[in-house]
Amino acid sequence: MTKILPRILISALLVSLMAGCSSLGNDKPDDTLGWSAEKLFSEAKSEQAGRNFEASNKLLEKLEARFPYGRFASQAQLEMAFNYYKDQEPALALAAIDRFIKQNPTHPSLDYAMYLKGLVTFNESQGFMSNVSKQDMSERDPKAAKESFNAFRDLTLRFPESKYSKDATIRMGYLIGAMANYELHVGHYYFQRGAFLAAANRGRALLDNYANTKQVEGALGLMIQSYDRLGMKDLSADTKRVLLKNFPNSTADKETISTDPYWWAPI
């Protein structure tokens, strides 16, 4: 027994040494060791310009880890958010933006961070506005569009003089029109399926939330036709008076209700 134990210990030691040598052979030297924060940032921006967003972020992560209190650290967070946005990683982009805003509430680029947040969710909103004719429209979720609108609105309210506010305002107008169209289209969807009360309620929701859009006329027409089908003559008549007062030449209450395949266009 005393002869077997040393052999077992020696074998274990040899296995350990072999594993250690193997791992050492696989380790690649870090060429960035000794780089200054400025050098790391410059190289990260170079990778970004070449659309190598993953490589850029790896450099930015090293910068932030090695120089957490330097002048490039907060900018590195913002650049990482941009890289995630361009690399179509919206969840990571939003997480990076929120971290930047929380940690840098007075940063000179705060307006840009808020604008970037709007852009990320603006792109995400295209999913609910895409034309998927066989999908149940009542199950589509305009959450991203609303989040994008809120981000742009916050930017314009907090930084009205920002160079990003003009574009944010234009995008807000697009989103309002798209969300109003969404409500109207879902109302039409319900109407075609005989859910007239649900259709009328969608029209009412459009009036409550998007009163200054062109879709109001269609919403009133939808409500009138829905109330007629439900036998609610008083509500139908009241709604028609509102329609003709605001749109004297309107025929929305007589038009055929359909689910236009181009419903998402913010007319």
Rank of each mutant, 00 (worst) to 15 (best):
M80G: 11
K45F: 04
G118I: 03
K102T: 07
A93P: 00
L230N: 04
A81K: 01
S56E: 03
Q77L: 06
S226G: 14
C21Q: 14
R66F: 07
M129W: 08
G118S: 03
A205N: 11
L40Y: 00
R204P: 04
A200Y: 10
A144N: 12
S36I: 02
K214A: 13
L184W: 00
M172W: 02
S109K: 12
V216F: 02
P90E: 06
E124G: 15
F196M: 07
A65E: 02
L175C: 09
D167L: 08
A180D: 02
N201M: 02
A144V: 07
A113Q: 05
P108H: 03
Q75R: 13
E183R: 07
K102D: 05
Y189N: 00
L110H: 01
D31V: 12
D167Y: 05
T121E: 05
K240D: 07
W264H: 13
W264K: 03
E124H: 07
V132P: 01
T251W: 05
R66K: 10
S165H: 09
Q135N: 09
Q135I: 14
D234M: 12
K102H: 13
K58W: 06
D30M: 01
K163H: 09
T239D: 11
T213N: 09
V15T: 13
L5V: 14
P108C: 00
A96H: 01
N123I: 02
L206V: 05
D30V: 15
K146M: 09
D167H: 02
V242E: 11
Y112E: 08
Y190E: 01
R241M: 10
Y69Q: 14
W263Q: 03
P160G: 13
G231D: 08
A95V: 03
L78Y: 00
K254Y: 05
D30L: 10
A12W: 14
E64S: 14
S16W: 09
R241L: 15
S165F: 06
A55G: 10
E255W: 05
A93Y: 09
I176K: 13
F128P: 08
T239G: 08
R7Y: 14
Y227A: 08
N150M: 13
F67M: 12
P142H: 08
D238Q: 15
K240M: 04
